[in-house]
Amino acid sequence: MMHLNRVATATFALGLAAAITAGKMDSASAQGAKCEPDQIATKYPSLAGKTIKVATDAESPPYSFRDPKDFNRVIGIDVDMARAAFKCIGAKMELSLGAWSGLLPSVIAGQNDLMWDDLYYTAKRAEQVDYVAYMVAGTGGLVRKGNPKNIHDFADLCGLTGTAGLGTVEEAALRDQSKKCVDGGKKEINILTYPDISSGVRLLQNDRADVMVTDLALVDQLASDNPTLFERGIKVLSDFKIGVAVRKGNKDLLSAIYDSLTALHGNGEQKQIFGNYKVDAGLIVTPTVLTK
């Protein structure tokens, strides 16, 4: 019996791995592709009656930010997706607001159940949490209008000042590039980290930084909304995925998120939400579960 269980688990894992590359999860989970909120007790028993705590920072547009018409509301593609997902699952959710750098640690510590706030998938992070990826990300570098320092590529940043969010993938990319600069005999990149988006923008605006490296969607929005101030200098379409981070070991929650996101993907709600915030629907991908 034990032997069979092991085989079954291994097969499932293999199937997952295959799906990551081939993206064929649709057929494998056809039965989870519908929204059945009243079935929560049978589908995800450990979630029934619980309020799920979603960690987000409410200061990262367009993913999570305060509604300018009513400061008591938090909106954004990630927050709206979360609301739609939990409506689909049939469980109550509660937003837990904190500074971005504290969000993931709180999920790992168990203080919150999941993090949904422009979190990129990395193998290192996947050692601590499980992901359900639902969109791809690009990295963008925002520069001042006229691109005075002539920045078009990461390699152009040697000897300049760059800023990125504390603890983000972009910060890691800058450090990586700085090392490459030094190895190539050039000056290193002076890296400033910012605690939140608006302070990063101020760094750029006040000429304390030459480039602000962050999510491509955000960079495009900032550039198009402030054509006299900024423009996009760098665009890198990586295979970075953005996903929901769930604490390891929470199988029911992971399946629930995966199933609901698949449903939202299928019935067009995800596309609609993206459209509300003028985010490029081309960034949407089929939801996938990433556990390492």
Partner: peptide, 16 residues
């Protein structure tokens, strides 16, 4: 640590 106090709230307003 997720205390939604005055400075954090003002940062959120500025954030948007």
């Amino acid at each position: 640590i997720f205390v939604n106090e005055l400075t954090f709230r003002s940062q959120q307003i500025v954030g948007q």
